[in-house]
């Protein structure tokens, strides 16, 4: 085989990465800028981080984002997992129909979901704010959980559930002690998806909130109207948090596997 030139593919990859990450890096660098300028770096300072921590409005938005994401993740994971398990036991026609319906909110443009929810909440005279935002987040997160849990449920061997009941486990104990451990990878994947979908949502949140309840995306959107490097500081923190979460999500299972394999090798010796 002819030896291919290696230069171009590497250059291509480097360009791609630059395109993806330079904007983020620039933003992170400028979050440490001592002046208000977004074009000239005039010296290192933590000024904008101090401002950020002192700004109760921003800190409020952070707590809204985090608590909504956490609650929406928990609720949609429970709902989605139970639905996926239920679906696997449903008659085929109904099951396929429901799975298709489940894909609708995923395919639907956010703006349509957002306007639909806004009209719904208005027409039902809901007091818009934290609760409506949480409900909406649960709504658009659950389909993602169902989609990632359902394949795992289908792989689940029913005889394991039978075995558990045979050994004296009630249906609920069987769910907790046997079914959930078996479909755990699907549940984790669903949780991760739900958390990120909720945490960085802007469109839906913007339309269904009210009474001054804002999450990070909304407050950042409002702040962009005036130059305010505090956004850079906030965004940097968010990126670091996500990076740490990703690292934990990827590295911990790897370490666990390594440990398990190591133990097995030890036993073989």
């Amino acid at each position: 085989m002819k030896k291919r030139k290696k230069g171009f593919p590497i250059l291509y990859i480097v360009l791609c990465f630059l395109f993806f990450y330079v904007p983020i890096l620039v933003m992170m660098v400028f979050s440490f800028n001592s002046s208000r300028s977004l074009t000239r770096f005039e010296g290192f300072s933590l000024h904008w981080y101090e401002q950020l921590l002192a700004d109760s409005e921003i800190m409020g938005a952070v707590s809204v984002s985090v608590s909504i994401a956490a609650l929406a993740t928990i609720i949609s994971t429970v709902l989605g997992t139970l639905t996926a398990i239920g679906l696997s036991k449903t008659r085929r026609v109904l099951k396929e129909w429901l799975l298709n319906v489940n894909n609708l909110p995923i395919m639907n443009p956010d703006i349509v979901t957002a306007i639909g929810l806004m009209i719904l909440f208005s027409s039902m005279k809901f007091d818009k704010g934290y609760m409506t935002m949480l409900l909406s987040h649960v709504l658009f997160c659950t389909p993602y959980v169902i989609t990632s849990v359902y394949p795992k449920v289908r792989q689940f061997d029913d005889s394991l559930a039978n075995a558990a009941m045979d050994l004296g486990a009630s249906p609920f104990q069987t769910l907790i002690k046997v079914i959930v451990p078996c479909i755990k990878p699907g549940i984790f994947a669903g949780m991760l998806l739900a958390f990120t979908m909720s945490f960085d949502d802007f469109v839906v949140s913007y339309f269904v909130t009210g009474n001054g309840v804002q999450n990070i995306s909304i407050i950042v959107y409002n702040m962009t109207k005036r130059t305010n490097p505090t956004i850079n500081a906030l965004s940097t923190i968010v990126i670091v948090v996500i990076l740490v979460a990703l690292l934990i999500g990827n590295v911990v299972p790897m370490l666990a596997n390594k440990k398990k394999n190591g133990r097995l090798k030890e036993e073989e010796r």
Binding site: D157, S159, L160, N162, A163, A164, M165, D166, L167, G168, A169, S170, V178, P181, C182, K184
Partner: peptide
């Protein structure tokens, strides 16, 4: 009577051991 209340245990065809 549901299976979990019977004094009967089963060895399943493909063993059905809990993999975790």
């Amino acid at each position: 009577v549901p299976p979990y209340k019977r004094e009967i245990n089963t060895v399943f065809q493909k063993y059905a051991l809990f993999p975790f």
